[in-house]
Simulated assay, not measured.
Amino acid sequence: MLEYTCECEDIVYERCREGGFAYIRRTTRLDGVVQQIHETYRWRAKKTQDVWIALLNGEAR
């Protein structure tokens, strides 16, 4: 894991790296219990960084 949003929220995002590629993982929790985990496609690091910045700026869907 390279970066992540606050663990105190119900939805946590992580920017991860694996095998030369990177991706973003979204974990949704309810009362501290993991309900769902979703991961994006594996992209080159630059693409993942661009999406990560858009996500943090509220520009990603």
Rank of each mutant, 00 (worst) to 15 (best):
E9M: 12
E9N: 13
Y23V: 01
R17W: 12
G20T: 01
R15A: 13
E14V: 11
I24T: 00
A45M: 10
Q35P: 00
R17A: 14
R17M: 12
G32R: 02
T28G: 00
T48M: 05
C8A: 15
Y23E: 02
E14G: 09
D50T: 08
G19M: 05
V51T: 07
Q36E: 02
L55E: 12
R61Q: 14
T5K: 09
G32H: 01
G32P: 02
G20I: 02
L30E: 11
N57F: 08
T5N: 12
T5C: 08
T40M: 05
M1N: 10
T5L: 14
E59S: 12
T48F: 04
H38N: 11
N57K: 15
G32S: 05
I11G: 07
R15Q: 13
R44C: 07
A54E: 15
T28R: 06
R15E: 11
L56M: 15
L2K: 15
W43S: 04
E14Y: 13
R44M: 07
I53L: 15
E14D: 10
I53G: 11
E3M: 12
E7G: 08
F21A: 10
A54W: 08
Y4F: 11
D10R: 06
E59T: 13
I37V: 08
G20K: 03
I37T: 04
V34S: 03
Y13L: 10
F21M: 12
V33Y: 01
T27A: 06
E3R: 12
G32Q: 04
R42S: 03
Y41P: 00
I11D: 12
I11Q: 09
L30S: 08
T28A: 07
E59F: 09
T48K: 00
R42C: 04
Q36D: 02
A45Q: 07
C16R: 13
G19W: 08
V51M: 14
V12S: 06
A54K: 13
R44S: 06
E18G: 03
Y23P: 03
A54D: 15
D50Y: 10
I53S: 13
V12D: 06
R26V: 02
G32W: 03
Y13I: 09
R44D: 13
V51H: 12
E14W: 09
F21L: 13
Q35H: 04
T40P: 07
V51D: 11
D31A: 15
H38V: 06
Q36W: 00
L56Q: 15
R44K: 06
N57Q: 15
E9S: 11
E9R: 14
K47S: 05
Q36I: 00
R61I: 12
E3G: 07
T40W: 03
